[in-house]
């Protein structure tokens, strides 16, 4: 069985042979550890694939990972003070409600980057302004949502033309331990947006993979209703027990292992964490995948420990 076949057996609850595992290395992590990280990558070809020494440009960051400011296709101004990590939006093109009325989203295909719907709304308006919009519910709120959605639907149409097996989306819906807006308002304003986008994916035969940082427990059922097939939630913000309660068996979970703790844990902690996650979320029919993102502050020994641990637990069978 190929890795891809096994991956989709896991996402489709089709009895995978092993738990799919994935480790992501941020550009800043490569820039810090360089050849030493390359050694680890070459030790674990099952995780990283075959790697040719020297094939990574340690300091060659893609555009948004570079230090400085840039303006995206929506007119949002990004700033990055930490090369190799994600920046954030510091300039919002629609600070006043009246700006929404004349706003025109990008006319061409610009992609669906992380932060395509909910985050895009506050990238455009500013976080506090958007929260006040959700409190007061002026017509401009729905107007803005409609404009962003209309563009996004066009993006999805373009995305699914290639008939992918899976369409990948990322939008951080939660704060660390709460949803920013009431779940009822989320269901009223945002769920229909995701549902329309994801329906197009399903119609084209693509599974829907969605990443969200933050606490989303109260809306996981709604994300499933909206068409999410594979959810990538954070352990730390949601809790394994809550995820087991609301998501296990209902949606495939690509578990975002607790990267907020990786820098501080020992290898033994890492193993205990993965063991606990697997024991709580594993089912023989599938529905569990494991993901670990490594920032530059994670010690090399912990990166290696995570790789070893994932290799050990990928064959967990209860």
């Amino acid at each position: 069985m190929t890795k891809q076949e096994n991956y989709f057996r896991a996402t489709d609850f089709g009895v995978p042979e092993w738990i799919p595992i994935r480790v992501s290395l941020m550009p800043a992590t490569w820039a810090k550890y360089r050849e030493a990280l390359e050694e680890i990558v070459m030790e674990f070809p099952f995780i990283f694939g075959e790697h040719l020494p020297g094939s990574i440009g340690f300091d060659a960051f893609d555009g948004t990972y570079n230090e400085g400011e840039f303006t995206d296709a929506w007119g949002c101004v990004w700033k990055n003070v930490a090369p190799g990590l994600d920046g954030m939006v510091v300039g919002h093109p629609l600070p006043n409600r009246r700006d929404v009325r004349n706003f025109e989203p990008p006319t061409g295909i610009v992609g669906l980057p992380h932060g395509f719907m909910f985050m895009r709304l506050y990238y455009l308006r500013g976080f506090e302004q958007l929260m006040i919009d959700f409190a007061e519910e002026p017509p401009e709120l729905q107007m803005l949502i409609d404009k962003v959605l209309e563009h996004n639907l066009m993006e999805v149409d373009a995305l699914v033309k290639a008939k992918p097996d899976m369409a990948v989306f990322g939008d951080d819906l939660g704060n660390q331990d709460f949803l920013p807006i009431h779940p009822q308002k989320w269901r009223k304003y945002l769920q229909p947006c995701y549902a329309q986008m994801y329906a197009k994916c399903h119609a084209a035969g693509a599974r829907v993979y969605m990443h969200s940082d933050g606490h989303i427990i109260e809306i996981i059922d709604n994300l499933i209703e909206a068409g999410v097939d594979i959810l990538n939630p954070q352990v730390g913000a949601n809790g394994l027990d809550h995820l087991a309660r609301v998501a296990k068996g209902k949606v495939a979970i690509d578990l975002d292992l607790d990267r907020q703790r990786f820098p501080f844990w020992s290898p033994a902690h890492i193993e205990a964490h993965v063991r606990e996650a697997v024991e709580m979320l594993y089912a023989p029919e599938g529905g569990l995948l494991l993901y670990a993102e490594m920032e530059p502050d994670v010690p090399l020994e912990n990166i290696r420990a995570m790789c070893e641990t994932l290799m050990k637990f990928k064959d967990f069978d209860g």
Binding site: M131, I132, N175, F178, P180, I181, H182, K185
Partner: peptide
């Protein structure tokens, strides 16, 4: 959990 950020800001 009765109030969220919009209510807090208002």
């Amino acid at each position: 959990g009765e109030f969220f950020i919009p209510e807090m800001l208002m």
